[in-house]
Design a protein around this nucleic acid. Structure first.
Lengths: 115, 115
DNA sequence: GTCAAACTTCGATCGGCATCGTACTATGGG
DNA sequence: CCCATAGTACGATGCCGATCGAAGTTTGAC
């Protein structure tokens, strides 16, 4: 079975705020969350646009999963990732929205044309 | 003059999200923000309920100030602190509310009586 | 059965932040 | 003027997390 390889997913309501903030503070991890939030479909670990090694990426995915932010499951040899949006929002209302909003806003400010 | 002793206060809109999260991730600093948010009046550096040394506290106040979260001014020998609620909310809508809400919720869960 | 692809696990390294004690500065009271 | 009060500034220390490479594991394709 493939399910055996899938580590535990805590209920977001059981995750301390401290752990959630620690998960969201790392830029690469925020990028992961942003890309998941932006796209309509789940993304395999290797499908993200990240400038880090595979082993480091694995570490980041684990931190996000243990913080209740993402769900992971296998599809063949690929480990898929999906954002646990609703469940997480129930536990931490407004938090993800605020962080993502600020991220997008900053990304926008870096691009414009006014320079 | 006393004003000379007051370091610069950046506009929250100029503070990167990364810096804000780094400011809010430290428990002692969140405690400071919470106590400011809870009370109706400003609080001097020495008026907080913190289990850390003075020099460490000074460090935390600086980090919060530089993140655009608090305003500091002198009243005699006391350095007063106030939460920059509205200005900060304009720059990071919903963020402070979400963090404070989660904090309060957790604090409540630790006390009850069901245990 | 054999190979390649996709990740994970394990140790080691390295840099940054929280922490503290000590010394220093500014203010106000007696 | 002198002292107490309230913080700040400055190293020094110690820990924790991000990072990587190398080796291991699981799956699917052929």
């Amino acid at each position: 079975m493939a399910a055996d390889r899938i580590p535990p997913h805590p209920d977001p309501r059981d995750v301390p705020l401290q752990q959630v903030l620690e998960a969201l503070i790392e830029p690469a991890r925020r990028t992961i969350v942003e890309q998941l939030s932006a796209g309509p479909s789940d993304i395999p670990c290797g499908g993200f646009d990240l400038a880090i090694s595979k082993s480091t990426a694995t570490h980041h995915f684990r931190v996000l999963r243990e913080a209740g932010l993402i769900r992971q499951y296998y599809a063949g040899t690929s480990r898929m990732n999906s954002l646990r949006r609703e469940e997480f929002d129930e536990a931490f209302p407004g938090l993800l929205e605020a962080v993502l909003w600020a991220s997008v806003r900053e990304a926008g400010l870096r691009v414009p044309g006014v320079a």
